[in-house]
Amino acid sequence: MLKTSISPHIHSPQNIEYAMRNVLIAMVPALLASVYFFGVRALWLEIISILTAILAETLMQLLLRKPVTVSDGSAAITGLLVAFNMPPNIPFYVPVVATALGIIVVKQLFGGLGHNIFNPALVGRVFVMFAWLPEMTTWNVPLHPDWIRHFNLFHINLDSITSATPLAVNKLQGMSALVSQFGSKTQLYLQSFLGNTGGCIGETSELAILIGAFYLFSRKVIWPTVPFVYIITVAVLTALMGQDPLFHILSGGLFLGAFFMATDYVTTPMTLSGSLVYAVGLGLLTVILRLKSGLPEGVSFSILLMNGLTPLIDKLIRVRTYGKQSKRGRDHE
């Protein structure tokens, strides 16, 4: 019996599962860094978020009588990203609510993978941020870790002291206070790059995120345009505003946002020029929110705002078709 189908009859092995699996692999360094710096509690946060995401996706798809596609790994990525965006000492119900909201409302109610306008993990994070502001803005750093207790799987309470994130210190007390806290400027850059600062569990270690990101570039899962343009825009704009650009790109959630959330397939523009506009917009919004708003950090909000602009960017910015004189769309609208 001969089968027949449309051409082409061969296919690239890079399907959805391939992309999602590689993103998960790329997040492993950041996960390890989070456990190293914030103890086993970070691991529990991540496990609980992932399980919530998988459960919520399965239940929603069963309820809406859709094929259950939880095995493609996109739900697990959402769960892990939500966990990465949580402060270390957060109560466990917070990531659960954030993940469930992201998966159920933002992803499945909009039609599932590919139909969501906003990044589910970020909406979840912003929702709980406004729901439980005190919990979400209390930052802890481990207190001289006792390594055996630190990595004991059942030692879920963190021995820690409350401390503001470098961005908050910079905002409230200025750069000099920050430098004296770390000893020297070099030390500040180094500790920020390695991840030994206060902040969300997955965002502090720029080194781990970069390792994962270069893995993704080598696998051709994401393209470096958006993250690098985003980071460069932030550096240039902070320098113009009289701030320390290196400090600004190494602290906060910029790297996590740039490499793992601003590169989400579904919610970013498709054309190259569109992504440039998107990335510059991200940098602009981040700098404005960091320096001119009441909040110390603005990566999540700027990515969500630009997510909302993505359909418009895709509609307005087009590429000239082969053999056409002008860009498309003009003569039809």
């Binding site: 119900y93 609510v97 409302v105 109610l109 929702f127 709980v128 406004f130 729901a131 439980w132 502001l133």
Partner: peptide, 19 residues
């Protein structure tokens, strides 16, 4: 219930009515 501040803010109303 641990109160979620966002629900008494305008986004909470839109979310509730939408769902």
């Amino acid at each position: 219930v641990k109160p979620m501040t966002i629900m008494v803010l305008p986004p909470g109303a839109l979310l509730t009515i939408g769902i």
